[in-house]
């Protein structure tokens, strides 16, 4: 059944294919257009460089009136990402505008990686290290970057072997 939310999600998907933004990619899951998988590549010249971070976006029929629930599936170490992968970002909460689409959401999250807001920490250790010990912070980030890359490699291997 076509609803405004589903129609708009098809439009978002079409735009992602026709005019893909740099460093992010996303697609609906095979059986459910309301559930998307996405990948954000860590921005260059940041501690997140070379990371391939997987996320899920869960939409409701209220989209685009209300934002989707966006979560990192890959392990993340960032002041504004909760232990369960949930993201603390104003445009996904009280500053949401129906003019944001999937591409805009992912691009904003990508910018958030290197521009954390330590004043509203979702991970207090990450926020503390970011402010007080940048070297230790970057070490922790390097660890999750490596982990994301290994997981990505494993998936590619399993795709090839199957």
């Amino acid at each position: 059944m076509s609803t405004p939310a589903r129609r708009r999600l098809m439009r978002d998907f079409k735009r992602l294919q026709e005019d893909p933004p740099a460093g992010v990619s996303a697609a609906p899951t095979e059986n459910n257009i309301m559930l998307w998988n996405a990948v954000i590549f860590g921005p260059h010249d940041t501690p997140f460089e070379d990371g391939t971070f997987k996320l899920t976006l869960e939409f409701t029929e209220e989209y685009p009136n209300k934002p989707p629930t966006v979560k990192f599936v890959s392990k993340m170490f960032h002041p504004n990402v909760y232990a369960d992968g949930g993201i603390c970002l104003d445009i996904l909460q009280n500053r949401w505008s129906p003019t944001y689409d999937v591409a805009a959401i992912l691009t904003s999250i990508q910018s958030l990686l290197d521009e954390p807001n330590p004043n509203s920490p979702a991970n207090s250790l990450a926020a503390q290290l970011y402010q007080e010990s940048r070297r230790e912070y970057e070490k922790r980030v390097a660890a999750i970057v490596e982990q994301s890359w290994l997981n990505f490699q494993l998936q590619i291997d399993s795709l090839i072997s199957s």
Binding site: R11, R15, D19, P64, P98, T99, Y100, A103, A104
Partner: peptide, 10 residues
């Protein structure tokens, strides 16, 4: 500066 793609939809 409103996003073209979504603004156009509305």
């Amino acid at each position: 500066g409103f996003p073209k793609f979504t603004t156009e939809d509305f």
